[in-house]
Design a protein around this nucleic acid. Structure first.
Length: 274
DNA sequence: CGGACAACCTGGTTGC
DNA sequence: TGCAACCAGGTTGTCC
């Protein structure tokens, strides 16, 4: 569910509201959500810590704490972080509760339990956390056709599948992959290594346009995505191909198709995207 | 190394 | 109305 724009929206909201605040206690109610370290160390390692920075890398929200560790929250398909004032009614699928000073709660709510939490101390932990293996960020100016060409040079997989690969580009999910390929008029089944430099230039430009527009709209609420206050985004009204199969393409009038690529629903206009 | 695919999970929707 | 089947915006591990 949450792709780069949804995570970015969440991070911006939380940055303004969590900075300098203290986590008094942590209660994990679905143990397998904590991927590192063990649940007990996770809970104890966060107690009493103060937020220093809130950042995003790909789809990971990274909370730096004074003293050096980093809390990573990955929302999986249905995860949300809610920041609730004292006395708020409970949320339905809370899996972890961060009890803050003053009775506020940061709740990780996740119906499908695909979300992941990691507490990482770069000084002491030997593991490589997943956000250090990601490809370039699409919105930081380092994703160019020139940078992308060698990354796709020997890749025969469909460009749609490669867009979803976080080691190729960070932060793209199923919605924005389809929207981007429509905007730059590239067929989702084209092999990665078949794209010309001109097409890659169009792809990079389309990707940043699609993502930036979605951030302005505070994300796409297709079914479950909500912001930290439980409010929906508005970008779902801007989608031109995603889940619009059977409707006419707004550009040429051809019926939008749906196929399955790499196990993911893929929506495109067979006339605009060759 | 790259690609295909199963596995992890449960809620909401669809169809009989 | 009831219930089974299917679908879902993500990632990782395994096998070839």
């Amino acid at each position: 569910m949450p792709e780069l724009p949804e995570v970015e929206t969440m991070v911006r909201d939380l940055r303004a509201r969590l900075m300098g605040r203290v986590i008094e206690r942590v209660e994990v109610s679905w143990d397998r959500m904590v991927r590192y370290p063990d649940v007990k160390s996770f809970e104890q390692g966060l107690s009493g810590r103060r937020f220093e920075k809130v950042e995003r890398r790909g789809k990971h929200a990274l909370f730096s704490l004074y003293g050096g560790s980093v809390l990573s929250v990955h929302r999986g398909m249905t995860g949300s972080l809610f920041l609730r004032p004292p006395g708020s009614p409970d949320d339905r699928f809370v899996r972890t509760r961060f009890l803050l000073e003053g009775g506020w709660q940061l709740r990780f709510d996740d119906a499908r339990k695909f979300g992941r939490l990691i507490l990482f101390d770069p000084e002491r932990d030997a593991i490589t956390p997943p956000w250090l293996t990601l490809g370039p960020e699409p919105l930081h100016g380092d994703l160019t056709a020139k940078a992308l060409l060698p990354r796709l040079a020997r890749r025969t997989a469909a460009v749609k599948t490669l867009l979803l690969n976080q080691a190729v580009i960070a932060g793209v999910g199923n919605i924005y992959a389809d929207e981007t390929l429509f905007l730059c008029r590239i067929h989702p089944q084209r092999p990665g290594n078949s794209l010309s430099t001109a097409e890659l230039r169009r792809l990079c430009r389309a990707l940043s346009e699609v993502l930036e527009a979605a951030i302005v709209r505070r994300g796409t609420t297709f079914s479950t995505y909500r912001d930290v206050d439980g409010q929906k985004g508005a970008n779902q009204h801007e989608l031109v191909v995603f889940h619009r199969h059977g409707e006419r393409c707004g550009r040429c009038g051809t019926i939008i198709q749906r196929i399955v690529l790499g196990g993911r629903g893929t929506h495109f206009c067979p006339r605009c995207q060759r």
